[in-house]
Amino acid sequence: MGVAIRTAGKGDRELIVRLLDDAFQDDPVSGWVFPDAVDRRAKHPGLMAAFTDIVLAAGRVDVTEDGSACALWLSMPAGDGHDGHDDHDGDAEDEGPAQVREAVDPDNERIEMIGRLTAAVHPTGRAHEYLWMIGVAPGRQGEGLGTALIEGVLDRCDREGVAAYLEASNARSRKLYERLGFEPVGPGLDLPDGPTMWPMWREPRVHRPAQALSREGAPAA
């Protein structure tokens, strides 16, 4: 049986925030941003809320019908950076990570740093679909939910000839993305005194039309 997926709306905000918070509490990058476990439990939901609000406003959030997994996507035109601002809006682009830091935890410079570091390595030359985050409830991992969420978008990318991009935050997710056709682009992003993130790019795969069949069901000559 396939995985039922729908597009989330503003009414799903709390569901998405809670799902991302649960999915990323033990992620290496979240642990780097909030090294203290108690601090992470208190402030991590606010960071996930900030990310959710950005994507609900400017992109699309796909969620499984049962609310067990979600994926946050942004469509990035050629020349656009990490936060969707074009090259002629450099001031706004520079302010984005600082605004997130101010809203979530002004004393935590790593919140701003992660935004600036990922923006610096984000490819800008070609239009692409950007998988900002994908979260699966801890008790549902390994069921193929994340793959189902990604494959639906990748199928459309292949039909339309559009590339896709993401940053893998751990070795397990990197292996999943490699199976889906993503490849590392450039060196890994080593966070200061922290883990490595892997920027990954996927070229669209050529869709070949199905071979015509004769009345007997064999390929037509």
Rank of each mutant, 00 (worst) to 15 (best):
L74Y: 13
L74V: 11
L74A: 08
S75A: 15
P77L: 09
A78V: 12
G81M: 05
H82R: 15
D83F: 15
D83R: 01
D83K: 01
D83W: 15
H85I: 03
D86E: 10
H88M: 06
G90K: 04
G90T: 11
D91K: 00
A92E: 01
E93I: 09
P97L: 00
P97N: 00
P97M: 00
Q99A: 10
R101E: 14
R101C: 13
E102P: 03
E102S: 14
A103G: 03
N108A: 07
N108C: 12
E109D: 15
I111N: 06
I114P: 05
G115S: 09
T118C: 08
A119N: 09
A119T: 01
A120I: 02
H122W: 00
H122I: 03
T124D: 04
A127D: 10
H128L: 08
H128I: 08
L131A: 04
W132H: 11
W132S: 10
V136M: 06
A137S: 13
A137V: 08
P138Y: 13
P138N: 15
G139Q: 12
E143C: 05
G144C: 13
L149Q: 09
L149H: 09
I150K: 11
G152L: 06
V153W: 01
L154Y: 09
L154V: 09
C157R: 05
E160F: 04
A164F: 02
A164C: 04
A168N: 00
S169D: 14
S169R: 15
N170E: 14
R172M: 08
S173L: 05
R174Y: 07
K175M: 13
L176I: 15
L176R: 12
E178D: 03
E178T: 09
R179P: 06
G181Q: 04
G181R: 07
G181S: 08
E183F: 02
G186C: 11
P187K: 01
P187T: 01
L189V: 09
D190W: 10
D190P: 05
D190A: 15
P195Q: 00
P195D: 01
P195L: 00
W198L: 08
P204A: 03
P209E: 03
P209N: 05
Q211W: 12
L213C: 12
L213A: 12
S214V: 07
R215L: 13
E216F: 14
